[in-house]
Design a protein around this nucleic acid. Structure first.
Lengths: 155, 155
DNA sequence: CGATATTCACTAATATATTAGTAATATAGT
DNA sequence: ACTATATTACTAATATATTAGTGAATATCG
């Protein structure tokens, strides 16, 4: 990066975060591919595993997937038998999304390789740095969330 | 997050990085929209500004855009007059991508708002934390790069 | 020199992202 | 009840991402 062209004084933070994520996710991608599940689909499965059943709106906020994207992803996931959708009785607009035995079995099969990859990463960066880094990410998100309620694309 | 369902012991690092990036980029998105340029197109313009002319392969590695995505993005950018493409004389496979007066003027118009947003963010998270965070990102990327050469999707 | 392998940008097919907008339902205020 | 507004999931159109694979050009090696 040449510092002569003085158009911008700051480093590109969104790009840095993207690069960091790419370096991390590239170690998980082969696992997802081997099990025939896409990155977004897996993000949703894992969120439902961690948090329990959710409505699309909640899934979108947690997984950072916009409402229009989610419509397609959930539709495909239902066709694949990874989730089931059910209208709420007391509010016909809303939807209840939950995992299926199939997706639970899938995550059980994937878990060992996922965990092994986390151990690989922690071995490279060190447990201490790892903990500090998670903390820093939480702090960043918290600081940016406190004043601005984390708007998503389609809102 | 309930800790009862013991499927995974680690927090979802790719998701955390995605959430962090989304919180950051959501503050820049209005600027990009107001100037009619997409996120990927701006990432490329800014990279060419910082680094100078590059070939698609280099752009892809730096901006983390896969070769097939890049083909379409660069094609649209050329139509919009944001870049120009030229075959290299000594290697007819390769391509030379550079900015145009139009995109340089665009970045000059956008620069004040971009810089102001960086100041906003730094005011929220603090200059000291900001510097440490950049350092941590560099360290993470460095650690993950040293043993694995940062493979992209289409390689 | 020639056969092989590699590199590069690209296409094709499908999945997802983004922006704008919609119909159906629910809620708040009158 | 009733009107205005808000919320929820959705569609449409376009841009980008992902995976696999291709042809042309170049480099490598026998």
């Amino acid at each position: 990066m040449n510092s002569e062209s003085g158009n911008f004084r700051h480093r590109n933070l969104p790009l840095l975060l993207l690069q960091a994520r790419e370096h991390v996710i590239s170690r998980f991608r082969p696992i997802l591919n081997a099990h025939g599940i896409t990155e977004q689909q897996w993000r949703i499965v894992r969120a439902l595993l961690d948090t329990g059943p959710m409505e699309p709106r909640e899934i979108g906020l947690l997984c950072r997937i916009s409402s229009p994207s989610l419509a397609g992803v959930l539709s495909r996931m239902e066709e694949l038998g990874l989730i089931k959708r059910k209208r709420l009785d007391h509010d016909q607009r809303r939807l209840h999304v939950s995992l299926t035995p199939r997706s639970r079995a899938l995550s059980t099969r994937m878990a060992p390789q996922i965990e092994a990859t986390y151990r690989d990463i922690e071995a490279l960066i060190g447990a201490e740095f790892s903990a500090r880094f998670y903390g820093a990410l939480d702090e960043l998100i918290g600081a940016l969330t406190s004043h601005e309620p984390a708007a998503l694309a389609n809102e």
